[in-house]
Computed example of a mutant assay.
Amino acid sequence: MPKKLIRITTIPLSLEKLLEGQLSYMNQYYQVTAVSAEKERLERYGKDNGVNTFWVEMTRAITPLMDAKAVWKLYNYFKKEEPLIVHTHTPKAGIVGMLAAKLAGVPLRLHTVAGLPLMETTGNKRKLLDFVEKLTYKLATRVYPNSRGLEEIILKEGFAEEEKLKVLGKGSSNGIDTSYFDPSNFSEEDKINIRQELNIPENDLVFIFIGRLVSEKGIDELVAAFKRLQERKLELSLLLVGPFEEELDPISEESKEIIENHPKIFTTGYQADVRPYLAVSNVLAFPSYREGFPNVVMQAGAMGLASIVSDINGCNEIIVEGKNGMIIPVKDEGALFNAMELIAQNEDYRIRLASNSREEICKYYERKEFWQILLKEYKSLEQEYIKS
């Protein structure tokens, strides 16, 4: 009977996107259970991926009473199931899962850090989030920052000791399937048809952003920079692929109005498959304030796009300045405008960056290689536990 591995994320979307395919792969070696909120979506994920599921109500907001109930429910579940490994992702799943696993005596308690939302908060809320982050790491037996830069931040902030931290491979939480994200999957006719469906002019240079349309992703700066650039009558479009979020971190009313009314800004809402939109685009514009190890930048690279990214961990590890993209300071609308202008007006430079993009991703971030690295880590920890 294979040993039990429980993987926890706050919402099923993280299982679907951030860990796509990974749990099914691990199910060949362990009896895998996916734990998350949103019962119906979670059960659908389990059915589609051939893994067990267990539903626990969780939110990304600060909800102490609900979180306590989640810890109690998970504690009882772990006591019954006796898993060898509990591996959590995302901040809320991390604290809830690690606390329940520690109380239940789970031997291997692993937590992946794919970003630190607390870096954009201040005051008492920041103090609370710092405490929760430190506690999560203290409860874990091993912590996996998904980039070198994130590891440096964790050490600098004093969240954990160096010996508890480990970056797997070159970074990332899941690598990327480069046969799936491959520009050759789309013919010229496909691209023409997709542009026509989106009403994007056939000859426009397209900047694309993929992700939540929120302030901390740099959407306000991106919209303002694009508006200025487009006023020069260049043949440009901006394609925004992702949902608006009004609750936690909304963009400015001014940006929202520009997006709604600008004839050259196109939105698609959330899309399960982003490849068609990357296929008809030329440059990824990703001026995020913070990331772990962004899948979007890997996906764009695999699809042969040049990228403009902010100088933050993850982004500045995937992109090499002047080789496969450009790196700009965080929250700097002027620098973003200059980079967009340079890449829009210098086709030879853009093509050179784009020509290197796919090769870099294939070389360092192939998904199945990452899965093998993670499996090797599990087996190594398992052997250490058995010996002890």
Score class of each variant (00 low, 15 high):
residue 219 I to L: 10
residue 383 Q to W: 10
residue 256 K to R: 14
residue 32 V to C: 08
residue 84 L to G: 07
residue 46 G to C: 05
residue 195 R to L: 03
residue 174 N to P: 03
residue 23 L to E: 09
residue 283 V to Q: 03
residue 315 C to R: 00
residue 324 N to E: 03
residue 266 F to S: 08
residue 131 F to R: 06
residue 208 I to H: 02
residue 350 R to Q: 13
residue 319 I to S: 00
residue 190 D to I: 02
residue 261 N to R: 10
residue 298 M to E: 06
residue 55 W to E: 04
residue 318 I to H: 10
residue 253 E to D: 07
residue 310 S to I: 10
residue 34 A to I: 08
residue 347 E to M: 01
residue 41 R to G: 01
residue 354 A to P: 05
residue 31 Q to E: 11
residue 223 V to W: 01
residue 383 Q to L: 09
residue 137 Y to E: 10
residue 25 Y to H: 09
residue 8 I to F: 10
residue 52 N to L: 08
residue 158 G to T: 02
residue 231 E to W: 05
residue 229 L to F: 02
residue 223 V to N: 05
residue 338 N to G: 02
residue 224 A to R: 11
residue 181 F to N: 09
residue 135 L to H: 00
residue 79 K to S: 04
residue 141 T to I: 12
residue 279 A to E: 10
residue 88 T to F: 09
residue 168 L to Q: 07
residue 219 I to E: 01
residue 166 K to R: 12
residue 197 E to L: 13
residue 142 R to F: 06
residue 301 G to C: 12
residue 37 A to D: 15
residue 23 L to R: 06
residue 190 D to H: 13
residue 144 Y to H: 13
residue 242 G to T: 06
residue 79 K to H: 03
residue 126 R to V: 06
residue 349 Y to P: 02
residue 231 E to L: 10
residue 210 I to L: 15
residue 52 N to T: 02
residue 116 L to P: 12
residue 298 M to S: 11
residue 258 I to G: 04
residue 40 E to L: 08
residue 168 L to C: 00
residue 197 E to H: 09
residue 122 T to M: 12
residue 377 E to G: 04
residue 34 A to F: 07
residue 110 L to P: 03
